[in-house]
């Protein structure tokens, strides 16, 4: 079993800015542990004769010339914003806050 602890889940929730109840912390501790256990299971399948595979579909990077294509207008881009000043998104301050 993995060693995910309640304290780690509380710390992660703080980083993600998600408020959790104690019950949720218990449940997520188990669930995140299961995800970590999955790493061990997949590692079993790794052997030297299996090349690293990012995707089974034959894809290569797609490039194009750096020219302006079809774009949204400023008005269209801002239409769904919670707050804006007409030309820019307004966001909550993240620097200089009270500690």
């Amino acid at each position: 079993m993995s060693e995910i602890t309640r304290e780690q889940v509380e710390h992660l929730a703080g980083l993600a800015r998600i408020a959790l109840t104690p019950d949720e912390i218990d449940k997520l501790t188990g669930e995140l542990g299961h995800i970590v256990d999955s790493i061990a299971k997949v590692t079993e399948a790794v052997s030297a004769d299996v090349p690293a595979t990012s995707h089974p579909i034959p894809l290569a990077n797609v490039f194009r010339d750096d020219v302006v294509g079809e774009t949204l207008t400023q008005e269209q881009a801002l239409r769904g914003a919670p707050e804006h000043d007409g030309t820019r998104f307004k966001v909550s301050a993240i620097l200089g806050e009270e500690q």
């Binding site: 800015r17 998600i18 408020a19 959790l20 109840t21 449940k27 995140l32 909550s92 009270e98």
Partner: peptide, 27 residues
């Protein structure tokens, strides 16, 4: 902190079950 807490949908929505079932997006 004074930053806005980012609620996942299930949290912004109505009552959660008392069983404390956490939604997959929260995870």
């Amino acid at each position: 902190s004074s930053r806005s807490w980012r609620p996942l949908a299930s949290r912004a929505s109505a009552p959660r079950s008392s069983a404390g079932s956490s939604s997959a997006p929260t995870r």
